[in-house]
Design a binder for these strands. Structure first.
Length: 1089
RNA sequence: AGGUGCGUAGCUCAGGGGGAGAGCACUUCCUUGACGCGGAAGGGGUCAGCGGUUCAAUUCCGCUCGCACCUACCA
């Protein structure tokens, strides 16, 4: 049987990708297990878990391609390489999608199906999309350890969630608080700041009057306040004025003066105008503000209109004399700033919540109870107007926070929430308790900031450190409750009791039984409003509870798991489990170790898949693979996730979860907006793969990943009904955000296959053509090579035996190996793949292959043998260099190459190390003995000369079949450079007769071009008139250069101050052009004689 | 409002104190035996604008304009 395998004329990715992926899977190469390799030879990436809300789009393809590149590279470097895959339950996003579908397809709400029913449906959704996500990742070629994949709600991860929560509860880091949260009235849940987006809308700015109660003579009858949300006045509990309005105004004007000094022009005028405005306020309003301030100090009250509620005037800095009326209404339960005011005045003023969960007003709104907030707004305005209490209305642009999930405006809403204390604690926080790395940090956030400040975690590009530190430095507590049904339910059972009842309850045998098990249950006793709680470890009632006006205390019991043995007695004793679930980011923040079986990998149950416990005497997965190496993600996740993972890693394990953070570009749609699952503008990478191939897609993604720019990806959808090509960015949506209306036939199509009854369009994007072309070129390079690689010798090679082009291509390959490696090490895939591409295409194909073709035509000659040996080696290295980027085609070609040329390499010069699978082969190393700077320079001169001759051929329309006669006229001292090197020019420029002669005359009909100081005569190709015209044009160009350099060198400053080598370089350039000019002049003179 | 990044060829983007680059697109030529998803050659840019530093600025520093994202806020 012949060893020769044939390749089709062009690359057909669809045929080979699936079997190759299967081959990798079967070989077990993706699977990682602890072994004897030391920590510095381990490489671990935790996949940024895609959420199961929907299918992956190109953004995920980018993220995962980057990870796969790093993973495949490190695998070839010989590291014990683990890429942990998995998916995220994505609480609110997934529940929102499923709820939306319930409504769209069945017309029912979650309340119709109930908590269990809804959760069941979401599990089904999760199963469906998890499977789809995995298959998408596999199509992309991701070499994850599938045997270890995790889901944030599986048993292993859930266990870690409970342990983390338990520890934090025990340490007092988790506490309950009444706080203002961003409330989504549509989904009836709080959402985090990160889930809020701001939108500018046209609104109004109303000025309201509140009557002063029993005004004394000389006192105003009203105070005026302004608002963009008039209905919130129903929740007002005070009106604030500044405690020292005169000083506040003065300070502000002084600040303006400073600024005015420092700037100029138009801005100055604006600042001056602002200054004038403040001065006017000082004249006109200050006395009144001072009077109000005094009234506030005297404890005077105003009356809240419509509800006739008396409320105090108070003094607080928040009221800015420079703004509005100078007075501000205080609505603590519905405004963040007012809430802060309340915390400073909670002894004097009330906090009144006027909203229901669904955005309607509650009983505190009196006659407005039951109305939707916007209906109430209109009615409040009308009623105030009727009473003459509305003094002004102006148009105003307002920024309104919207829920990213439901797209409805959010409301600040007062509710009971669980928080994690992120800031510093007086006694500090024990980090990594129970581990060898345990230490005490000032607080959770501080520990995470220190890790970056001290360089234990580094960002690439580095500038993202700022994003990370800026966000963390606010040290805001993390609200972790979500009023959802899908997620990790908060493991707290609570009961309110009076202080009087407390002793007997604590002594109750059922409760005592539970909290006597400190490893299973922890009890905390909380005084509402006091933000104080203490761990209860014995039935003795603490007598030193702080004084509080509230008689009630709250008992919270945290269970480490749902063991009936403990839950039952609690419930029997009147404790109720919290209804809420944890913020999704809680479980994702522990992903780097929950996946490895923390807190105890040895006993973690894995429900199928690879065990986490140690085997064959090697350590368990957690101790072997933690901490990990690199986190790969987009910049918008830095605050949401990266920071929190660092915090949790330090807290639970005393060590960072990864040392490197690689932030890559985002994929934008044709409009420049980020692709996102919830926006519906994402496209399925599998669509691209089916048209262009996975390697083509990966090639382009890598090539575009340059470290700076986000990537705009215009996409064309081919209408499934009429085949019209629709530019997606310009196409109107259909019934949902995932569907579009064809511009030609006006019928609806889907782009993500989400609507059961709408046909799905094929997607195209021209950007990927480049990748397909590259793959095809590589394919044909290999095809040519394999056609010529029969009986490749594997004999010792002496460098001296190699031909010029052999030594050149090997030196160039050395360079390429270094550049690709450096690009990868620098997190610059574009630079890496660019270097590989330039070598393969511009050096290997365009020059080397052409040069060895004549040698290969004499297959039995030693020269042909050497060429084959070098070619096989180059191809082998190129495939290895490209494997991380385009793994399918390279593996396919490697298999062919291996079958045909079993042993490769140049014995004596390079090693021939290989493996059965390319994915497992060693990463190429440059061979110092093959470096040859001088040869690279010489060769590039030969290339330039060749190009110059080709240019003459092209511009004179000489057919490529016609051999040329060429004379090179180098200066005498350069003659040697052309000995035994002429064949490069001869062969590649189509030269039949080449002479090298410093003194050759220029015959008639010869075109003359100059490269450096070498004149090239191309004989018999041009008539005198044409050559004269060409030379005149050339003279003009060269003269310009000469003028430029002469001017530069005539500048004494330049000659004196510029570095000597720069001056010398310029002198040489001038000399070169002067030489060219002389040559042109001589030629012209001869033509004219 | 503040922060970050970005404005370089028709398009998508590199680069970076000392002669402006790549891919795609474009023009001309070549269906020669790896590849027309190819080869050869070519045209095309006041490096957003204005100042400053420097012998030298597309590159460094200010400011202006435009775009994107992040953070905060305007009662």
């Amino acid at each position: 049987m012949s060893k020769k395998f044939s390749l089709s004329k062009s690359y057909e990715p669809t045929e080979s990708e699936a079997p190759i992926y299967r081959m990798w899977l079967d070989s077990g190469v993706f699977h990682a297990t602890p072994d004897e390799r030391p920590p510095e030879r381990r490489y671990v990436i935790m996949m940024p878990l895609p959420n199961v809300t929907g299918a992956l789009h190109m953004g995920h393809a980018m993220d995962n391609s980057m990870q796969d590149v790093l993973i495949r590279w490190h695998r070839m470097l010989g590291d014990n390489t683990l890429w942990m895959p998995g998916t995220d339950h994505a609480g609110i996003a997934t529940q929102a999608v499923v709820e939306k579908r319930l409504k769209e397809l069945e017309g029912i709400t979650r309340h119709d199906v109930g908590r269990e029913g809804l959760v069941e449906r979401i599990w089904a959704w999760k199963d469906q999309y998890q499977a789809r996500i995995i298959s998408q990742l596999q199509r992309v070629g991701c070499s994850c350890d599938w045997e270890r994949q995790r889901f944030t709600m599986d048993r292993v991860c859930s266990r870690a969630v409970r342990h983390t929560f338990f520890r934090m509860f025990e340490d007092g880091l988790i506490f309950r608080g009444q706080r203002l949260v961003n409330w989504d009235p549509y989904l009836r849940t709080s959402i985090s700041d990160d889930e809020v987006y701001h939108e500018t809308v046209q609104g109004f700015f109303w000025t309201l009057r509140y009557p002063v109660m029993d005004p004394l003579p000389g006192e105003p009858e009203y105070v005026e306040v302004a608002t963009t949300r008039p209905e919130t006045m129903l929740g007002d509990t005070a009106v604030a004025v500044h405690p020292d309005p005169a000083k506040a105004l003065r300070e502000e004007m002084a600040a303006l003066d400073e600024e005015i000094k420092q700037c100029s022009g138009r801005e100055k005028a604006e600042l001056a105008a602002e200054h004038e405005r403040l001065a006017a306020r000082e004249r006109d309003m200050l006395p009144r503000l001072i009077q109000l301030r005094d009234m506030a100090r005297a404890g005077r009250q105003v009356c809240l209109p419509l509800l006739d509620r008396p409320m105090p005037l108070i003094c607080d800095d928040w009221a800015k004399p420079a703004l509005g009326t100078g007075c501000v209404k205080i609505t603590p339960a519905h405004d963040y700033n007012d809430y802060d005011v309340w915390t400073r005045h909670c002894e004097e003023i009330d906090i009144i919540n006027i909203l229901n969960e669904d955005g309607t007003l509650n009983e505190n709104a009196g006659p407005y109870a039951g109305l939707d907030r916007y209906v109430a707004r209109d009615k409040v305005v009308d009623d105030l107007k009727a009473q003459g209490l509305l003094t002004a209305v102006e148009d105003r642009q307002i920024e309104i926070g919207h829920s990213d999930r439901s797209k409805t405006p959010i409301e600040p809403y007062l509710s009971d929430q669980w928080f994690i204390r992120m800031g510093d604690s007086p006694a500090g926080v024990r980090m990594g308790e129970g581990t060898a790395q345990a230490f005490t940090a000032p607080g959770l956030v501080q520990a995470a900031m220190d890790a970056v400040n001290e360089g234990r975690v580094t960002f690439h590009p580095e500038r993202f450190v700022k994003t990370y530190l800026d966000w963390l430095s606010e040290k805001r507590d993390w609200p972790i409750s979500r009023q959802l049904w899908w997620g990790h339910r908060i493991p707290i059972w609570s009961r309110t009791v009076t202080r009087a009842e407390l002793p007997s309850l604590l002594a109750d045998g059922r409760l005592a039984f539970v909290y006597a098990q400190p490893t299973e249950a922890r009890l905390r006793l909380a005084i509402p409003d006091a933000e104080y709680s203490r761990l209860v470890t014995s039935p003795i009632v603490p007598v030193d509870l702080p004084n509080s006006p509230v008689d009630a205390v709250l008992l919270d019991v945290c269970l480490i798991d749902d063991d009936e043995q403990y839950a039952r007695p609690l419930e029997d004793a009147g404790f109720c489990r919290d209804e809420d679930v944890l913020d999704t980011w809680f479980s994702s923040s522990i992903w780097p170790f929950s996946t490895l079986g923390w807190p105890d990998a040895a006993t973690a149950e894995v429900e199928g898949g690879a065990p986490l416990a140690g085997r064959d005497g090697y350590p368990d997965c957690l101790s072997y693979y933690y901490p990990g190496s690199c986190l790969v993600t987009a910049r918008d996740i830095i605050t949401l996730w990266v920071a929190r993972m660092v915090i949790m890693g330090l807290y639970n394990l005393g060590d960072i979860p990864f040392s490197d953070v690689f932030i890559h570009a985002n994929i934008l749609d044709g409009k420049g907006e980020r692709m996102s699952k919830s926006k519906g503008n994402g496209i399925d990478p599998v669509d691209i793969i089916e048209v262009y191939g996975a390697d083509a897609m990966r090639y382009v993604l890598c090539d575009m990943q340059t470290g700076n720019q986000d990537i705009r990806l215009p996409v064309t959808a081919v209408c499934p009904q009429c085949s019209h090509h629709n530019e997606l960015a310009e196409t109107n949506h259909g019934r949902s955000i995932f569907t579009y209306m064809c511009a030609a036939c006006n019928r609806e199509f889907d782009v993500l296959g989400t609507m059961p009854d709408v046909p799905t369009a094929k997607l195209l994007s021209e950007r990927f053509l480049e990748g397909r072309k590259f793959c095809n070129k590589l394919w044909n390079t290999a095809r040519f090579a394999l056609a010529n690689l029969e009986d490749v010798p594997h004999e010792r090679v002496m460098r001296e035996d190699l031909a010029l082009e052999d030594r050149w291509i090997l030196a160039a390959l050395n360079q390429a190996i270094r550049q690709v490696t450096a690009g990868l090490a620098d997190y610059n895939p574009s630079a890496a793949i660019g270097a590989a591409r330039d070598f393969m295409w511009n050096s290997l194909c365009d020059w080397y292959l052409e040069l060895i073709k004549p040698r290969l035509r004499e297959p039995r000659s030693p020269s042909a043998g050497l060429a084959r040996q070098v070619l096989a080696y180059c191809l082998d290295v190129v495939l290895r260099l490209l494997q991380p980027f385009i793994p399918f085609i390279t593996e396919h070609l490697y298999q062919q190459l291996s079958r045909q040329v079993e042993r490769r390499g140049l014995p004596g010069l390079t090693d021939g190390a290989g493996a059965e699978l390319l994915i497992n082969s060693p990463w190429p190393a440059a061979v110092a003995e093959l470096d040859d700077e001088a040869l690279l320079a010489t060769f590039s001169l030969l290339q330039e000369i060749t190009t110059a001759i080709r240019d003459v051929r092209n511009s004179q329309n000489i057919p490529s079949t016609q051999g040329l006669t060429v004379t090179l006229k180098p200066p005498q001292q350069r003659m040697l450079e052309f000995s035994s090197r002429g064949h490069v020019i001869e062969h590649l420029a189509g030269v039949e007769t080449l002479a090298v002669d410093p003194n050759a005359p220029r015959p008639r009909g010869a075109a003359s071009v100059v490269v450096e100081d070498i004149q090239i005569l191309v004989h018999n190709v041009i008539d005198d008139e044409a050559e004269r015209a060409r030379l005149l044009k050339e003279r003009q160009r060269v003269q310009k250069e000469i003028d430029m350099f002469r001017r530069k060198l005539a500048n004494e400053n330049f000659v004196a101050r510029a570095p000597a080598e720069v001056v010398e370089e310029n002198r040489q350039r001038l000399a070169k052009y002067e030489y060219q000019m002389a040559s042109i002049q001589t030629d012209l003179a001869r033509l004219e004689s």
